[in-house]
Computed example of a mutant assay.
Amino acid sequence: MADWNDPRQAQQGFGSVPRAGGDVASRTTFDAGLRKYMLSIYNYMASGILLTGIIAMLTANSGLAYSFASGPMMWIVALSPLAIVFAMSFGMNKFSKGTLQAMYWGFAVLMGLSLSTIFLVYTGASIAVTFFATAGAFAGLSLFGYTTQKDLSGWGSFLIMGVVGLIIASVINIFLQSEALMWAVSFLGVLIFAGLTAYDTQKLKNIYSSVRGTPMMDKVVIMGALNLYLDFINMFLFLLRFMGATRE
């Protein structure tokens, strides 16, 4: 997603004469629009996660998950969502709102197929407990990002570097098969995506003032939902390594 600067609200100077009701009305309208904008993002995100969960459970219960656990199909369902994320991110300005919506829902379905394999490894009860723990943590972190007066923009580069480090460490561990490295990656993964949840929420809030009333806002809502979806799912998967009970 493209970065937009957060324009600072002009402060009324000392000794100036306020316009009767003007500033209050403007602020109220802005706040109402911001709440509607953020609610749209959360609705898209929650709907995407719900769709992913339904697809994952149906696929696991049907037995199709076994075909996604190994072989060529494993790589197809694992890499296809990644390809969609890159296409949406780099083609955001080019694609229409309808195209981005279709890609988002397609991404959610493919993620459901990919995540169906966790039901082959972990018990349904432990998956549910981890999901609700993640939902609670996500809600708290997103609320912090929305309400804090602290500028979190400085976290961005550090957190992105952390994600790159996680990917590199995970690839290395495919060959090393180190349990200690696996636990270290999982612990850092939880922390990094927790930080990204707060950071992305504040970033989306700040972007609103730049895109409100423009055709770009609908696209930003979809891309914002995608970002928060990815924060949630990654935090869930890393937490699952700690909280998941493996099947006998």
Score class of each variant (00 low, 15 high):
S186L: 07
T246G: 12
V171E: 09
Q202I: 01
I207H: 05
A65G: 00
G213P: 05
A46S: 11
D231K: 00
P72L: 00
W155G: 08
V190F: 07
T99K: 08
A128D: 14
F175Y: 13
T147G: 12
I49L: 06
T214N: 10
A198P: 01
S70N: 11
N5H: 15
T214Q: 11
G195C: 02
A2R: 15
R247Q: 09
Y208P: 04
F232K: 02
V77C: 00
G13S: 15
F132R: 08
Y122Q: 05
I41E: 03
A56M: 00
V171D: 07
L82F: 10
L230S: 08
F232Q: 00
V220I: 11
Q9A: 15
F138D: 03
V121C: 11
V109P: 03
R212A: 11
G213N: 03
R35Q: 14
A108P: 01
V211T: 04
Q11Y: 13
D23Y: 09
F187N: 13
I160R: 15
V185T: 11
G244I: 00
G63A: 05
N5T: 12
Y37H: 08
S153D: 09
A78W: 08
R212G: 06
R247P: 07
N234S: 09
L237D: 05
M88E: 01
G189E: 06
F138L: 08
G33N: 10
L166N: 04
A2L: 14
Q12I: 13
M217S: 10
A198T: 04
M38A: 04
W4T: 13
G22F: 15
L50P: 03
A194L: 06
A2H: 10
A198M: 08
Q12K: 12
S40E: 14
N61F: 13
N206Q: 15
W75M: 12
T59C: 02
A56V: 05
V185N: 12
S47Y: 08
M103T: 02
M243Q: 10
M57A: 06
L226C: 04
G106M: 03
I168Q: 12
L240V: 04
L143K: 12
L166Q: 05
K36Q: 13
T99W: 01
G213D: 04
L100S: 00
T117E: 06
V24E: 15
V85E: 10
F138C: 06
L240E: 03
G244Q: 06
M45L: 08
I127C: 03
M1I: 11
R27E: 14
G136R: 09
L176E: 14
M243V: 09
D31R: 14
A128W: 13
L239G: 07
I222F: 00
L152H: 04
A69I: 07
A198V: 02
N43C: 14
L50M: 12
I127Q: 02
A108V: 01
W183M: 15
A20S: 13
N93R: 14
A65E: 01
M1H: 09
M217Q: 11
G63H: 01
L120F: 05
M74L: 08
G71C: 03
E179T: 15
L196K: 02
G213W: 03
K97G: 09
M38K: 03
